[in-house]
Amino acid sequence: MTAATPAIEPPTADEVLTDVHQGVGRILLNRPRALNALTTPMVAAIDEALAAWESTPLTAVVLASTNPKAFCAGGDMRAIRANALAGDTEASENFFATEYRLNARIAEHPVPIVSLIDGICMGGGLGLSIHGDYRVVTENTILAMPETAIGFFPDIGASHFLPRLPGAIGMYLGLTGHRLDAADALYTGLATHFVPANRIDEVTEALADNAATPIDTILKDLEGREGREGREGREGREGLGGIPAPSVAGSKLAAVRADLDRAFGAPTLDGIRQELHALATPWAARTLATLDAHSPQSLEITHALLTAGRTRTLRECLAAELLLTRTTIRSPDFLEGVRAVLVDKDRTPAWQRADTQ
């Protein structure tokens, strides 16, 4: 953006903690009561730390949470809705512009970034982690891009990374908001490593104490298995923490992959629905019910955005997403979706249009 960025107040109550220990930078999200939902000051603080460390000889940067329940629940969409209702478009514009600038910085950062995803990670949480080099999950991890359920669309560069997942998985995740566990995350490639939750705090120290050892090797050692080959080839072995390390064979998505690719590989939303009807399986019926419950406007936007994102760079995707935020956050479906899911929590949104057919 060419316009001057408004001054940003620092995060309150130390909501972002940063330090450097033995050549490892550490960023801790510390807004536990809100499950680390991101505000503009939090995003700006993370961006500022990463910018300062671009010219610092660090071994790695670790991004984690002080709350074992959540890595990051996403952007604070209740605040975005409140801005829209108050007519404060500048505040929301500033949030998204700052967030997307951070997403690009993470993707282009010269120092390897290791995200420790223990607990909930949704929306903006994936924006903090997926663009980095290493995404470590635990047995507690839940990943999702649930935006179509609140009248929004998968942003934070999702129109770049979702279309690049295997087969039609990205379209499925973007449209349905399906929640992935650790096995699913490893199967899709959204995660790179597994470390038991009771060992996740050891990662930073291990990186600091073994600066000459490749990060991949350190993470595999903490995982307690011989890397991805072990995950794919054997069941029943346990990580050093006593927690069974998930294997691709345990992925729920892997079990429905053929049907998923058939349905969500269709070129249109109508085609996806037709394929799901034709499959006539319990999974297809549940998936149709999910689509029917989500915002028709959001489904249309998401399908078009992910389709276009296949040939766009990350920065082009972020620019397209920023343009879409300006209209989407003022739409009736967004205001109603956030109300129903995050404000009143009655989960009975009245969408503007009944269906897309």
Rank of each mutant, 00 (worst) to 15 (best):
P154R: 05
L63Q: 02
A91Y: 04
R234Y: 11
I106H: 00
T287I: 13
G174Q: 01
R31S: 13
R81L: 00
V114K: 06
E147T: 00
R353G: 03
A206D: 10
T176Y: 04
T302Q: 05
G174R: 03
I120K: 02
G87N: 10
I27T: 03
E205V: 14
T40Y: 12
T18V: 15
I8C: 14
T2R: 12
G250H: 01
L314D: 04
T287M: 08
F95C: 01
G236L: 11
L207N: 01
P332Y: 06
E139A: 10
Q22Y: 12
R164C: 14
T281C: 09
E90H: 07
I117K: 01
F194D: 00
A13E: 14
T356L: 15
A258Q: 13
A289E: 15
L318V: 09
L143R: 08
T39A: 10
K252F: 06
T66S: 15
A258H: 06
V62F: 11
V256S: 05
A52K: 14
A255K: 13
L173C: 03
T356N: 12
G271S: 10
I80E: 00
T89H: 13
G87I: 06
A52M: 08
G151Q: 00
R135C: 11
W283D: 10
R262T: 13
T213F: 09
L260F: 03
E93G: 11
A206F: 07
G174T: 13
A168W: 01
A37N: 04
P166I: 08
A158D: 02
G227Y: 06
L314A: 07
R78K: 13
E108Y: 05
A182V: 03
I80Y: 00
T59V: 11
G124Q: 11
L17V: 15
T307N: 15
D355P: 04
T192F: 05
L175K: 01
A182Y: 02
I200A: 06
L276F: 04
L207G: 03
L322C: 05
E205N: 05
T348H: 11
S92C: 07
E226L: 15
G124R: 02
R353V: 10
S331L: 09
A278Q: 14
F153D: 00
G167S: 11
E99D: 10
A91C: 08
D88P: 01
D333V: 07
D14P: 08
N103L: 02
T268K: 04
P6A: 05
V341I: 06
R228D: 09
D346C: 12
I169L: 15
Y187I: 02
A82Q: 13
I150Y: 01
R231F: 04
A197H: 12
L306K: 00
L318I: 12
L35H: 12
A60L: 07
L260A: 05
I8T: 15
M42P: 12
